[in-house]
Amino acid sequence: MDTLQTIIGTPVEDILAIARSLGWGAAKILRSYYRGEPWQNTAQAEVEGQDKKDGPVTAADLAVNRYILDKLHTTFGDAFGYLSEETYKAKSAAIANEWVWILDPLDGTRDFIDKTGEYAFHLALTHLGRPVLTVVACPELDKLYYATLGGGAFVETPDGMSKRIHVSDRSHPQDLTVVVSRTHRDDRFNALLKQLPCQNQLFVGSVGGKIAAIVDQRADVYISLSGKSAPKDWDMAAPELILTEAGGAFTHADGSPLRYNTGDVNQWGCLIASNGTYHRELCDTANQILAELG
């Protein structure tokens, strides 16, 4: 599939309009919970932190999850498969549908709870395991990023104005800025960062926020290295297409593409996202460093 024109017989512009509307709706819900303000008929929208196996979940997470899945099911019914962080249950089989919506209602839960403002909403439509239409909303930036396969990447503001976005053209390693998390960094990952040729760092929470920093040209590189756990499909699918359609690159360190809805939602190994100018060299360097670290 080179350029997306239609999806199950529907013009891509129509489905993109729905996805963008859902992104802004999700942003409104997240923002209301973030500020502790009532939303719809909710008298008390206080964030309710809970613990579960994969980390904290908030009332906002679940509210957005319900909102998005209800809207998608009402609009599309069974035409698509649905993979959501909050409804996923471990299983060995992939969803048996060529077209699958992958949803992360709240990317950056820790940043949401810690009030850094660096949280995001992800929605990706994938075809045969690859993203073809995606939305990332960053509520506290008042920005919604979106992309379609072959159609470019754009950023939209609440007034409905959109503009095309492109990554930086910085290419010298010493000029590249790596966007990193304040948390989720083990010793092996810190050792990798210290040995990279690019030493400028920008701290941003959530994967969506990190990729937004690259397409906004505030940063140039993002690296994910799994340890005891790994990022999931819903962390990567939506940001990936926005970055690549903005001219960047997003691959495993061996250069292979990411695959989604494979039956294992974990994205194991070393993943590298960049503005693309130094991508192959960066992958080679990371592989060499990791081999030496053992």
Rank of each mutant, 00 (worst) to 15 (best):
L4I: 14
Q5H: 13
I7F: 12
D14R: 11
R20P: 02
K28D: 14
S32E: 11
E37H: 13
E37F: 08
Q40P: 00
T42N: 03
A43N: 01
A63N: 01
V64D: 10
I68H: 09
F80W: 07
S84C: 15
Y88W: 11
E98R: 15
W101E: 13
I102K: 08
L103D: 03
A120T: 13
A120L: 01
L123K: 00
R130V: 14
L133P: 05
L133I: 08
T134G: 00
A137I: 09
Y145G: 04
A147V: 12
G150R: 01
M161R: 14
I165G: 08
H166L: 09
R170E: 09
R170S: 06
P173A: 12
L176E: 02
V179Y: 09
R182Y: 10
Q201I: 09
L202E: 04
G208D: 13
V215Q: 10
R218K: 14
R218S: 07
V221E: 01
S224M: 04
G227E: 01
G227Q: 01
K228F: 09
K232N: 14
A238T: 00
L241I: 09
L243Y: 03
A246I: 06
F250D: 02
A253I: 04
N261C: 10
W268T: 06
L271Y: 04
G276P: 07
R280F: 12
C283Q: 05
T285Y: 04
N287I: 13
A291H: 08
E292G: 12
G294V: 07
